[in-house]
Nucleic acid binder design. Structure first.
Lengths: 245, 245
DNA sequence: GTAATAGTGTCTATGAGACAATATCCG
DNA sequence: CGGATATTGTCTCATAGACACTATTAC
């Protein structure tokens, strides 16, 4: 940092939000329909430009979150995901965007008649496959966000953030299965989660099940870092250069 | 992203580099002495402002790397570490800095008489402890970089990047011990590393040892992602809120 | 030979994963 | 009772970690 700052070109700073949730056992991401021109009418991540010179990035992210969505801003914990600053990514000029990631519990559909009216949950698999096109480089940002969530599920108690204040162990398993995209054995999962001290704690009560035996309820425990970690089977690895007879 | 970009305030973009290496079995970070005024004379990370509007962030990072250091820019792989954009972090105005992380093999001291003359390797532990003060919020950036390196050592073949083109298994163990800050059993480490297919591959030759039996040489293998991961023992955990009788 | 480091063998505790068996609800 | 889901038990296999032991060099 020895250079003269006054030769620095003008750059616009934006924040983009990747909000993930679980609905109908599918991983979904919150998208809005753009109302203005670059990519008008296309789906995009919630977000926007920095308002004034003194605005903190995380504050701007929270502001956009409350402006463009119905979500309970207090509950959500935003985590910095990365910077996306390729010169050509925004036709309006040089825009450097700071992406944030958050995990939301299942929530009602965004309310019509508000600023958030254009916000909709969309299936992540449709975004990743390209079936649902996004504005700018937002597909890449979603991809990175999902990857981050997958990894964080292994080592942190993030999964509980997908659930409501209380949940059953099966609810928690649904989170892992949806995010990882693989089935898990309910019995081994059950014991594994219980044995990881501080991950979840009993929430006293039980509940009436629609069918079958009612499950115990739990809430998120104090532990943030899981040890031992939840293990995710190795990826099929797009290129497995082996094949012994 | 529905806002009008033209109300966006002017923000300066900088890149900062966290270059880590291993010297004398210590984790060290490359720092420069600032020659201009905010924090003039203090130690800081290499880096600088974006040059022109079309310059890519990663390109700017590489440019600063070659301008301010002697390192072989081609070999080093820069990885985005995060964004640091607090309003008050730079007295000159609003500066949003994108930090990059790289791992360098052991290299000679920076050459005097070049632009890199002020660059010096400094012990990471002195930075983290505050014994060596850094300009701006660079101590936090170094902290985050070291944390990232620690985690990446578990799941990726990053450790080989600390070594030269060929190395012994003991060399590799030194990397893990220095970065993690804990001792490892050489015999278990030996087998673990060998069993992880594609991590390291034999580099034919052996070498003459100063003392003891000469070791086999290896080079980095094709595998980037380690499975199973190298396991790092759980942290002592600053706050262990348990104590049952 | 001794010192020193490289590499191997082996035992044990623990966890992952498969899967049978039991428990508790609904109707 | 039968159907469905929750919870527990048990077995087997793989791996981490401890550590005795052998191998190969320099002197």
């Amino acid at each position: 940092m020895t250079d003269d700052p006054w030769v620095t070109p003008v750059v616009m700073i934006a924040v983009d939000l990747v909000i993930l949730t679980l609905r109908e056992s599918r991983l979904q991401v919150l998208l809005i329909e753009r109302g203005v021109d670059p990519y008008k009418g296309a789906q995009a991540l919630p977000g926007g430009f920095l308002r004034h010179t003194e605005e903190d990035l995380a504050v701007a992210a929270h502001r956009e979150l409350s402006e463009e969505t119905d979500l309970d801003v207090e509950t959500l914990r935003l985590e910095q995901l990365g910077v996306y600053g390729e010169p050509g990514r925004d036709p309006r000029g040089r825009v450097v965007s700071v992406a944030y990631l958050a995990i939301a519990p299942r929530l009602p559909e965004p309310t019509a008649g508000t600023d958030a009216a254009d916000a909709r949950w969309q299936r992540v698999d449709q975004v990743l496959s390209g079936e649902l096109a996004l504005a700018f480089d937002h597909r890449r940002i979603v991809t990175d966000g999902v990857d981050r969530a997958r990894v964080k599920l292994e080592h942190s108690a993030l999964a509980t953030a997908f659930c409501g204040p209380t949940f059953t162990i099966t609810d928690l398993q649904d989170v892992y299965e949806a995010v990882w995209g693989i089935p898990l054995d309910p019995r081994n999962f059950y014991r594994k989660v219980q044995k990881t001290e501080g991950f979840i704690v009993a929430a006293g009560t039980e509940r009436k099940a629609a069918t079958g035996r009612p499950a115990r309820l739990f809430k998120a425990g104090p532990r943030e870092v899981l040890y031992p970690p939840m293990v995710r089977p190795p990826e099929p690895s797009t290129k497995e250069p082996h094949s012994e007879p």
